[in-house]
């Protein structure tokens, strides 16, 4: 088991630091997946939950409103290494934190030539305090509410090797303090107690970067995400497998520059997320979470996600009750 653990961890790190030399514009949906990843399920007091995951967001679909253009010579790939931690202080109070390392690549293939720009750096972080409604477990119900800041740890003024400042979409950090709000609800199905229906809502209220390109004000648009999903636990051989199917609705409002709405930003997306988790041990789960857009309508013209995939290793430590599910799979 220890060997498998090392292999997975090493692979996740290598994927971000040394990305595949794939073929490699900008939009509001290509950023680092912070708000969508914060928040563990509740665990008993004294439980430390950890997850290290690799997230690949592949954008190669040029859209005008809901229409896709036949134009695939632009690609943008955001790869993130996410370290998520959560500690349950009491039965009803927990703190989660999320740290990121971000590798972004923009590639244009034109006239059989290819130009790429890549940035690598620590991304922003999120810390969230959660309230877990007590006394609901007996009914198979879990409700949590949380809120916290997104802390601008990542650089937002990286330059290329000529000293030219790259635009906001290629920066690992946003240089703004944002507020994340989070709500979670789940309920075991009476007919099949191993199955759980869950709903999650995440709001992100963004602050302003007052040093964008030196002197400008830039504010990424606020976002609202709603997840609805159902998951189960199956015993296959001697392994517990956790399949799940979720849908994600994401609404991003337009970015603003110097308080004026920026064209070609914002939009609505609906993605389907067929995920699966494998119990490696009683306290460790490997999650594989692909995400495929099934509907999107962007404002103006934008490069939109073609697909997304996340692979993560979850573990829980400590004396508290161990959760066998996490929000990826639900």
């Amino acid at each position: 088991m220890g060997k498998l653990f090392h292999i997975i961890i090493t692979a996740l790190i290598c994927l971000v630091i040394f990305p595949a030399a794939g073929s490699a514009q900008t939009c509001c949906s290509g950023g680092v997946p912070l708000s969508g990843n914060i928040g563990f399920l509740g665990a008993g007091p004294g439980t430390l939950q950890l997850e290290l995951s690799y997230d690949l967001n592949y954008l190669a679909t040029l859209k005008n409103g809901s229409e896709s253009y036949d134009d695939e010579y632009r690609k943008r790939i955001t790869q993130s290494l996410l370290l998520k931690t959560g500690y349950s202080i009491t039965r009803w109070l927990a703190v989660d934190a999320l740290f990121s390392l971000v590798n972004q690549r923009r590639t244009i293939s034109f006239n059989e030539q290819s130009n790429s720009v890549r940035t690598l750096g620590a991304g922003d972080a999120v810390i969230m305090v959660k309230y877990i409604f007590p006394g609901l477990n007996a009914g198979g119900v879990e409700i949590q509410l949380g809120a916290g800041p997104k802390i601008p740890l990542g650089p937002s003024d990286l330059t290329d090797d000529r000293g030219i400042t790259l635009n906001a979409d290629l920066q690992p950090g946003s240089n703004s303090w944002d507020l994340i709000t989070w709500g979670y609800f789940s309920r075991q199905l009476k007919a099949r107690p191993s199955s759980v229906f869950s709903a999650r809502i995440v709001g992100r209220f963004n602050g302003t970067n007052r040093e964008y390109l030196g002197s400008q004000n830039y504010r990424f648009g606020n976002t609202l995400q709603v997840y609805l999903g159902i998951g189960d636990q199956l015993l296959i051989g001697n392994r517990i497998i956790i399949p799940s199917l979720s849908f994600r609705y994401r609404h991003a409002w337009a970015d603003k520059i110097n308080d004026l709405q920026l064209d070609n930003t914002g939009g609505r997306w609906i993605n389907i997320i067929p995920a699966v988790g494998w119990h490696i041990s009683q306290s460790m789960i490997f999650n594989l979470v692909p995400e495929i857009p099934i509907y999107s309508k962007v404002e103006g013209i934008q490069l939109a996600p073609t697909f997304r995939i996340q692979a993560g290793l979850y573990m829980s430590l400590g004396t508290g009750k161990k959760n066998q599910l996490n929000q990826y799979t639900l």
Binding site: L120, T159, D161, L317
Partner: peptide
Amino acid sequence: MRQIIIIGAILLPLAFGGCEMDS
């Protein structure tokens, strides 16, 4: 846990490594 801390220590310097270009 110890392994995660070690990994974090390796990652941080790399993370702040800046960027590269390819009439």
